[in-house]
């Protein structure tokens, strides 16, 4: 009903908080200085997520570059009425990362992937200070999910698995996994509250 909350990252100490929504609106009008600022505001979430899914730093860097250039190229197509700038950018980033792991090379070892261990624990995420509070909050909220909800969500989102692969990995029925993914996200949403 309400617009998706527009995610904002806290600015570093002493700097004005960069507002991705305002910056993206300027980027849509061809403002390259705004694009540089937008890069500074979102490159860490973009790179971190892509690395998490793709795992290989060299490939993650390539994908992150594609994502950021895509943001520049298609900024005018972003519909602010449908969600915030960071949500849009993270959606692009995730889609690209997942496409990369499912590309030809990934298809070749699909069998292996389907049997590789579950996605790494949340603790493996890097130690940088910025965004730590948000990360703590996400970790805590993930801890509030049922095991099946949590594994369904994280294997798909961080592990880049399809729900069919997730069902296979967890030995759970397809329908159950689909439902747990949605329920898990809904519960996360309720737990996380507004992102301001």
């Amino acid at each position: 009903m309400e617009n998706a909350p527009s995610p904002r990252r806290p600015g570093g100490a002493g700097t004005a908080p960069a507002d991705p929504d305002a910056l993206l609106a300027r980027v849509a009008r061809g403002d390259d200085a705004a694009f540089a600022l937008l890069y500074d505001a979102v490159s860490a979430p973009v790179y971190g997520l892509v690395l998490r899914v793709v795992r290989d730093p060299a490939q993650a860097e390539e994908v992150a570059q594609e994502v950021m250039v895509e943001v520049w190229r298609t900024a005018a197509r972003h519909d602010a009425g449908r969600g915030g700038a960071l949500t849009w950018i993270m959606t692009l980033a995730h889609r690209r990362a997942v496409d990369r792991v499912r590309s030809a090379q990934a298809a070749a070892d699909r069998e292996t992937r389907a049997h590789r261990p579950a996605a790494p624990a949340f603790d493996e995420v890097g130690e940088e200070v910025e965004g730590r509070l948000e990360r703590e909050r996400v970790r805590r909220c993930l801890g509030g999910l049922t095991e099946l909800q949590r594994e369904s969500v994280t294997l798909a989102y961080y592990g880049g698995h399809t729900y069919r692969e997730v069902a296979e990995l967890l030995g759970a029925p397809l329908g159950t996994v689909k439902t747990r993914m949605r329920d898990g996200l809904v519960r996360m949403r309720d737990c996380l509250g507004a992102w301001r």
């Binding site: 995610p7 971190g48 993270m90 995420v125 890097g126 965004g131 909050r137 961080y158 996360m188």
Partner: peptide
């Protein structure tokens, strides 16, 4: 937000 929590 799950994605941003993985920031690096």
């Amino acid at each position: 937000r799950l994605g941003a929590a993985a920031a690096r």
